[in-house]
Amino acid sequence: MKTSKWIWFVWLLTVLCYVVPYGFLSDVQAWYGSFLFWSLTGLLIIGANIFMTKDFEEY
């Protein structure tokens, strides 16, 4: 089933939302630091949800 595959991608993104800004970007005080990272992650989450729910269209 498509849903279960994509949801793991979302959980991975969730973990990265903690690890990357606190672990790797805490010294990057510019727009291309945590601001860009979290914004792009938001877009990826939307994409994952679109794929995850693709077969809802049929019901």
């Binding site: 849903t3 994509w6 979302v10 945590s34 601001f35 992650t41 989450i45 995850m52």
Partner: peptide, 18 residues
Amino acid sequence: VGALGFEIIYFAGVSLVA
């Protein structure tokens, strides 16, 4: 910017709806 991270993690949680 932590406020953005806070919201994006909420956002990931909305995937629970799927």
